[in-house]
Each structure stands twice: as C-alpha cells, then as structure tokens.
Amino acid sequence: MRAAKLYKSMNLSIFTLVMIFLYIPILILIIFSFNDAKIIVGWRGFTLKYYAQLFQNETIKQAFWNTMLIAGLSTLISTAIGILTALGLENKSFSGRRGLMALIYTPLVIPDILMGVSLALLFNFTRVNTGMITVLIAHITFCISYTIIVVQSRLEGFDYSLVEAAMDLGAKPSAIFWKIKFPLMMPGIIAAALLAFTLSIDDFIITFFTSGRGFDTLPIYVEGTIRRGTITTINSLSTLMIGATLLLVVLTKRIRGSLFNL
C-alpha cells in the first residue's frame, strides 16, 4: 500500500517537473514580452511598446506574410495531394503499393539538414532562382508524406459497408464520395492540414537552404535578429504566435465537433 502510494506521488512529481521545464520558458517569454527592457535583466515595468514596434517593422510584416503565404499554399497543395494519394493507395491490388509506401515513409526519418541540402543542390543544378517558389516547393515536399499518412490512417478504418448502404439507397458514385466518404475523411483531412500548416510555419532548416537571399520567413528572420542580439520584438512576436496557434487548435476542434459529429 505504502509503496504504491509512494510510487504514485513520485510519478506525479516527475510529471510536474517535466511540465514546469516545458512551460516555464514559454511563460517567461510571454511575461518578458511586456517587460520594458531591451535585454532580460529583470522586471522593469509593463509596456506594449515592443508590440507596437512589431507592427511598424516592415521586415517583420513582410516575413510574416511570407510565412503565411508559404504555409497556406503548401498546406493547400500538400493536403490535396495527400487526399488523392491516400485514395489511390486504397486500391490494395495496385502492384507498386508497397514500394510507394516505403517512399512515402522515408522522408519522415531523413534529417531536415539532408533534405535542405539536397533540395538546395537540386535548385542550384537546375538553375532555378531561389526565392518564394523554391521555398514553396521545398515545403510541399516535406509536408506531403505527413498529409498522405494522416489521411490514409483515417481511410484505413473506413467502413466500406457505408458505401454499399449509400449505393443501396440510390446514390451514384459521385454522390457517395461527396456525401459519405469525403465527410467521413474530413477529420483526417483537417488533421493533415493542421499538421502541414504547423510544419511549414515552424520550418527553419529546409527554408534556410532553399530561400536564398531576400525571401525571409519568420523563423529565418528570428534567427537573423537573435544573431544580431535584439530579442525584444522576438518575445512579442513569439507570444502572438503562441496565441494564434492556440486559437487555431480550439477553432478546428469546434468545427469538427459541430460539423461532423466526429
């Protein structure tokens, strides 16, 4: 009894410690984004001036829009490809299926740096001008594997008798797809899109190798700024990004719950 109790409380305290280590830095970051000081030296009073600076800084704004553009487009395209590929892979008699699956899984374990370098080499070799297009291509490339796998795992559990039931009730193949299959895939599609979006927003290494000069996303900008030593606007920027992410998660949960009962 006592041993079990001890064991339980030990588990609990380890858990608490982990949570502290995970969340304390984020908390500090949020607090210090309102701190009226250029460097982290202690509390010097509440201010919103770094947020104001953020919104006046054209470079940051540009980097933000670049990030959103890349994330939005790569999410859209990689999710679409993911849906189509997953649907294609449903056909179990397709002979190249196993090989293709292996190709899809491999990028998940390839280090980002390798992917970045190889893409950079490819673009260099084919003499494509680096910039928005190359970054977009790179992001789509690393998102596809994830979107395929997420959508596919949703399709895996798909109850084919529902298709027969719909057919029995008079639905033609196109109606079956849009009224039964697609809605039931939706949770998988949303999860895939969300994953692609966060992967894209987050990416530094691959973007770094494929963006060239003159096309900065937020992570690239942040890295550059920190290298030069100013972290004040970075704190406020990060805080906003945390807020935006949380909002996104809550929103998708809501949408899923209310639209699909899933």
Binding site: D159, S161, L162, E164, A165, A166, M167, D168, L169, G170, A171, K172, I180, P183, L184, F260, N261, L262
Partner: peptide, 20 residues
Amino acid sequence: LPPYQRQVNTIFQNYSLFPH
C-alpha cells in the same frame, strides 16, 4: 443493374447507419 437503379433496399447486418 447497379444497386442504385434497383427498386430494392437492404437492411445490412451491422445496420451501416451513416455516423456523421
């Protein structure tokens, strides 16, 4: 005839109601 053109309907063994 394909199933959607038959005036026949089926009660499936596991009912197959649309969950969404």
